[in-house]
Design a protein around this nucleic acid. Structure first.
Length: 501
RNA sequence: GGCCCCAUCGUCUAGAGGCCUAGGACACCGGCUUUUCACGCCGGCAACACGGGUUCGAAUCCCGUUGGGGUCACCA
């Protein structure tokens, strides 16, 4: 039995935020590390593309990873045994290995410009032929490369892809044979001297002692390149496992584009990045639980799992091979369940994160009130529902917005029956000595009895009057939460709406 | 198009030759509960892509077809 400790990594690129699919990759890697004694989860930042760098990307990725609870053992702001963990700080390493390949005749300088390459591809496409970079004969010499550089031309380094098939046993897919002869001599060092993903990834995986690479299936073809590179460099090949891909319900890829499209159409943008779910009021517990079940299952019917339980039951062998579609309704159901299961303290903590992130008025409430609000909203699906249900109670009285449809339907309809109810109930509320749910209930049900009305006939107009909408916590709780002054204020104001059209 | 991967209810999946009359969850439909919105409870609908083998026996193994997906960048 090998005793070498498991070392896995999650390697995001700061060109965007933590994607839903990326979160699953991070989670599964984290799980592998947590499952084994001494296992290490490493966070490596693949910032080798300077042109696509996004400024706030990295802090957000770190923050969201932490929000999920996927804490890394090595990486930025953590232990740095085999760092640095930013590829931009490891440039000399990549240069050294590129040179090693050059010296060994396993790589060569290539002089074509991106424009020339693009033209060749275009040409091939026109002639409906397939394009593949063809190794120049003879190969450009180091002198020629030097001359080109002096002439201001960028020179790249290409790896000589061996003409043999690469076979590997994927921990998820099983034996896979990749025809390397299909692959061209790919670039390992760009014109600006920076490494491409392939070189940087292979070098770092080796130097950082990565034992297992768990990544999306879109990387499957890259594995042939990486194994070839490892062999040429004399590195050991880690174990590979390729995760099925996650799609939208309509089969399209989940991308930030979906958000832009929705915004353009005036719709609510779908959550794509972890941050979106966080802002939308989801619990990390629910997101993690749901995400873990996309491609993996316990083998029995268990679906509700805490992170700890997932650690205990997770196995790479339990990961399926087929792609999955992301069912948002199911995530919502998971969140509803988790919201009613976690402890009040935990729920409060998560709720506050939501309020601060969204900069909502309720953020300035004290914990006791917030906890009370949460209890009154029991059954909510996301924190956004809590905001929709109780948010209006915590804005200034003159800041509530009356929903036109609600006013029309509940107050104005039936010859202003709703307004009449408000007028009838107002003096009774004004006369109340104690502002408690008991007193309020006695007061309002009393009015119902006298007028032969159903509770809803009185409660709904009051609800609309004080919240501006047809939705709020139970009516007596709502009024207590609002307080006597606020309630009376708002009802008086709502009555004035009668004269407006 | 070449290469590669995949294939059970609408969706996520259980199932590793007889335990399958194919199980669970979400969604959906119906009912109950109800002062709003939710929640909750009860019930129902719903799948082994197709065709060949192998076998006493196939959702499970093999081959083919079809379908879906990935990849073919000086992006990761």
């Amino acid at each position: 039995m090998s005793v070498s400790p498991v070392r896995v990594r999650f390697a995001p690129s700061p060109t965007g935020y933590l994607h839903f699919g990326g979160a699953r990759t991070a989670l599964f890697n984290w799980l592998i590390a947590r499952k084994t004694a001494g296992g290490k989860f490493i966070l490596r930042i693949e910032d080798t593309d300077r042109s696509r760098h996004v400024e706030d990307s990295l802090p957000k990725i770190l923050s969201d990873l932490r929000w999920l609870g996927l804490i890394w053992d090595e990486g930025p702001e953590a232990g740095e045994d085999l760092g640095p963990y930013y590829q931009s700080e490891r440039l000399d390493l990549y240069k050294k290995y590129a040179q090693q390949l050059l010296d060994a005749g396993r790589a060569y300088y290539a002089l074509e410009t991106p424009e020339e390459l693009a033209a060749m591809r275009e040409q091939a496409r026109k002639e409906k032929g397939e394009y593949r970079y063809r190794r120049p004969i003879p190969l450009p010499t180091a002198e020629q490369a030097q001359q080109a550089r002096e002439a201001g031309k960028a020179v790249v380094v290409r790896f000589m892809m061996p003409n043999e098939a690469v076979t590997t046993t994927d921990d998820i897919l099983g034996p896979v044979t990749l025809a390397a002869e299909e692959l061209e001599d790919f670039i390992i060092q760009k014109g600006d001297g920076w490494p491409t993903y392939h070189l940087a990834c292979v070098v770092d995986d080796a130097l950082m002692g990565i034992t297992h690479v768990l990544r999306g299936q879109e990387h499957l073809m890259n594995t042939a390149k990486h194994i070839a590179l490892q062999r040429a460099l004399g590195f050991e090949t880690p174990r590979y496992a390729h995760l099925p891909i996650i799609f939208n319900m309509n089969g399209s890829k989940m991308s930030k584009r979906d958000k832009e499209k929705a915004i353009k159409k005036g719709e609510t943008p779908p959550e794509i990045d972890v941050h979106d779910f966080r802002v939308a009021g989801y619990l990390p517990e629910a997101l993690l639980n749901f995400i873990s079940l996309l491609g993996w299952s316990t083998g029995d019917d268990t679906e509700q799992l805490t992170l700890e339980e997932t650690v205990a039951r997770f196995e790479v062998g339990g990961i399926g091979k087929s792609n999955a579609k992301f069912d948002r309704d199911k995530l919502l159901a998971f969140n509803t369940g988790w919201a009613s299961r976690v402890s009040p303290e935990r729920l409060l903590e998560a709720f506050k994160d939501f309020l601060v992130l969204n900069d909502l008025p309720m953020r300035s409430l004290d914990d006791a009130t917030l906890g009370h609000v949460l209890r009154l909203c029991t059954g909510f699906r996301t924190f956004r529902d809590v905001q929709a249900k109780a948010g209006a109670l915590f804005v200034p009285d003159d800041a509530i917005e009356y929903n036109a449809k609600a006013v029309k339907k509940v107050l104005r309809k039936k010859e202003g029956q709703g307004f009449a109810m408000l007028e009838a109930v107002l003096p009774r509320l004004e006369a109340l000595t104690d502002w408690t749910t008991e007193q309020l209930e006695r007061c309002i049900t009393g009015l119902c009895d006298e007028q032969g009305r159903k509770l809803g006939d009185v409660a709904q107009p009051i609800r609309v009057a004080v919240s501006g909408s047809t939705v709020s916590p139970a009516i007596y709780d709502t009024l207590v939460l609002l307080g006597r002054a606020g309630t009376l204020n708002r009802i008086r104001h709502a009555i004035t709406l009668k004269e407006q059209e």
